[in-house]
Amino acid sequence: MAAELESSLELSFTGSGTVPGGGLPPARSRIFKIIVIGDSNVGKTCLTYRFCAGRFPQRTEATIGVDFRERAVTIDGERIKIQLWDTAGQERFRKSMVQHYYRNVHAVVFVYDMTNLASFHSLPSWIEECKQHLLTNDIPRILVGNKCDLRNAIQVPTDLAQKFADTHSMPLFETSAKNPNDNDHVEAIFMTLAHKLKSHKPLMLSQPPDRDQIHIKPEPKPAMTCWC
């Protein structure tokens, strides 16, 4: 059944079996499931919306529980569905609600607001929480500092964020979901992640839950990329 395949990084068959009367062999399409987490108001909804709808939303509302957005992309000639799971920032939702959505995620995007130091200081607890929910350690994770368009209000200096990212072996991206000229940047972040996932596959699939075993180190972390 498609349900069993869906959440695996292995090939899944979109529209297989479950579509009545579909005689044609289904098109193969991999699904990358990415969860986006971080404090309330850092811009998770705007970022995911920007990537999936191609523009900054006029108005967002508080995300209650978990929202889902999706976009199909083609990478090296392969059609891939990128699923973004946009989560609520308020702590109470994380504790008992959001866990279900950590299931089988292929990548994690941590977001902080560059104009809000508190949202940066929350990152360790997000990272810790993420560790508790995920099966394996080697799931690609990236750090995104959002709202870099608000140049005069920046509270989180890039070098501080870079140090933090290095400590946690994550690439850092500073971007803006809002700045209309930054459309490509948000796009590039998620596409970079998708490329990473595409090439990451063998590592993920062969990784046994036993963390003591030697495993291939993820490729060296890319330097901080800021397109601002």
Binding site: E6, S7, E70, Q83
Partner: peptide
């Protein structure tokens, strides 16, 4: 029932 039987599709439809 016409939806693809996976979490994302059904969640998306219903929400």
């Amino acid at each position: 029932l016409d939806c693809e039987c996976d979490m994302a599709s059904v969640h998306h439809l219903l929400s």
